[in-house]
Design a protein around this nucleic acid. Structure first.
Length: 428
RNA sequence: GUGGGUGUAGCUCAGUUGGCAGAGCAUCAGGUUGUGGCCCUGAGGGUCGUGGGUUCAAGCCCCAUCACUCACCCCA
């Protein structure tokens, strides 16, 4: 019997030390920004009843049709690992009647999502999103604020090689007129469409607009643009968004081809695109979903949100600058059991004071331990062995200057705490 | 779900017409009895992804399978 070959689930990944520092940095930057703008963290479960996603995302979408991790609960109910966060946040907003006290709420959440797609660069089956949502604001300010936040976050992370694409998808008043015009064209152009688009033509005609097949692009050249079919309300909403983005100095382009894959979107749709992550152009995307809360059983009311692809963002940030890792403050090179016991006690005491230590727990030679300390980038090494214990003093070596001094064993903790205390001021 | 590429040491990769399993880096040790970076010497480390087949002989050829990867689709 050979042991089973236990490895990662396909499309899943470990985020290892060396990467997690970067992830933490991105998280901290995002959280600080959101908090400054009045967003509050919400933590929602990783599973929901399948019906929530089926109703909110749309029965006919690829996500619901073939990408969800869905399975039977023991009592026969259908559960699904969340493929996105918005549906759950809406559910929570409704279930806890958060609209009652104040219908205007701003949330953010960060966590894993699950979609069973074929993995490739920048796309995983468990992937992470940074989400922000605004409930209860119909005014275009909300749209502009979210796009502005994305822009600002990316700037703070030194990610500048991106473009914001903005479009309007209309509303239940104006979209049917547009779909009708589009369907007419699609029927005429059917002979030159690719097989995928022929399939989309009837079920989700708007998706044909962003097909990448050259023949389809050609056939769609004269296609109607939805922003030409907007009703007065949608039209003025959209132009206000564009005006205010310009006013705030947020660069963007109006992208008539931009379509969202989820059914619940209305009016403003936007995407932050990049060429940095292989074929995955979208590093963040979002839009308005004014009808969703109502359709899920809550009060009719506007809402809008975005999701950032954390994995993709991390890849982009990593290309710029590797995250700094903080080496331990002190390496204790101890030789022999009595010295190691003492060193271990010191390291725990120093840890409680915020002074990070590393030491060799095995029996490596002093030379090997010095090499370890050097490799780890530690600035100071405390050397303690038999002769030090006999003489009652230990040696503190400064690795950069190669100078050492002797310190009486009884004073060692106080001396070290004093030596390293200045770092707290310099880091603060 | 469809197509291409790749699987050999911890990492990056060589491996010729099929003929003893290799290098660099990393690790450990020695050179220097207890003092790091540079240098020298040595050592450990392998189910050649897995399973079958062909062959006197397979890392290499054939079949299957799994994984990784890139792209399509779709999306973050």
């Amino acid at each position: 019997m050979s042991p089973p070959n236990i490895q990662l689930i396909r499309g899943f990944k470990d985020i290892l030390p060396g990467e997690t520092e970067l992830w933490q940095q991105i998280e901290h930057t995002a959280i600080a920004l959101f908090e400054d703008f009045g967003y509050r963290e919400i933590r929602i479960p990783i599973m929901e009843k399948t019906a929530l996603f089926a109703r909110s995302i749309g029965e006919d979408t690829d996500i619901v049709e073939k990408e969800m991790y869905t399975f039977a609960d023991r009592n026969g109910g259908q559960l699904t690992l969340r493929p996105e966060a918005t549906a759950s946040i809406c559910r929570s907003y409704i279930q806890h009647k958060m609209y009652a006290q104040d219908p205007v709420r701003k949330f953010y959440t960060i966590g894993p999502m699950f979609r069973r797609e074929r993995p490739q660069k920048g796309r995983y089956r468990q992937f992470y999103q940074i989400d922000a949502e605004i409930f209860g604001v119909a005014a275009p300010f909300a749209d502009v604020e979210l796009i502005f936040l994305l822009r600002t976050l990316f700037e703070r992370l030194s990610v500048t090689d991106t473009t914001a694409h903005v479009n309007s998808l209309g509303c239940p008043v104006c979209r049917p007129r547009f779909k009708e015009a589009l369907s007419t064209l699609l029927a005429e152009a059917a002979s030159s469409l690719c097989s995928d688009c022929l399939r989309r033509k009837d079920r989700n005609p708007m998706r044909v607009l962003d097909c990448k097949v050259p023949a389809c692009r050609e056939a769609m050249k004269g296609a109607p643009a939805i922003i030409d079919y907007l009703c007065d309300d949608c039209s003025s909403h959209f132009s206000t968004v564009a005006d205010m983005l310009a006013q705030l100095g947020v660069p963007f382009s109006i992208d008539k081809q931009l379509v969202r894959g989820l059914d619940y979107y209305t009016r403003t749709a936007f995407e932050i695109q990049t060429g940095a992550v292989g074929a995955q152009s979208a590093v963040a995307g979002g839009g308005r979903y004014d009808g969703l809360v109502g359709s899920l059983g809550g009060p009719e009311g506007p809402a809008i949100g975005f999701a950032i692809g954390f994995d993709r963002l991390a890849e982009i940030v990593a290309m710029g600058a590797p995250a700094a890792i903080r080496p331990p403050d002190l390496y204790i090179a101890a030789l022999g059991d009595p010295a190691k016991k003492l060193a271990f006690e010191w390291s725990t005491a120093l840890g409680l004071k915020g002074i990070g230590t590393a030491m060799e727990y095995g029996d490596n030679s002093l030379k090997a331990q010095m090499k370890q300390a050097n490799r780890a980038g530690v600035g100071r090494v405390l050397i303690v062995g038999d002769s030090e214990l006999e003489s009652g003093t230990v040696v503190l070596r400064n690795m950069a200057t190669k100078t050492q001094r002797e310190i009486p064993v009884g004073l060692i903790l106080d001396t070290l705490i004093e030596t390293f205390s200045k770092k707290e001021h310099s880091i603060g």
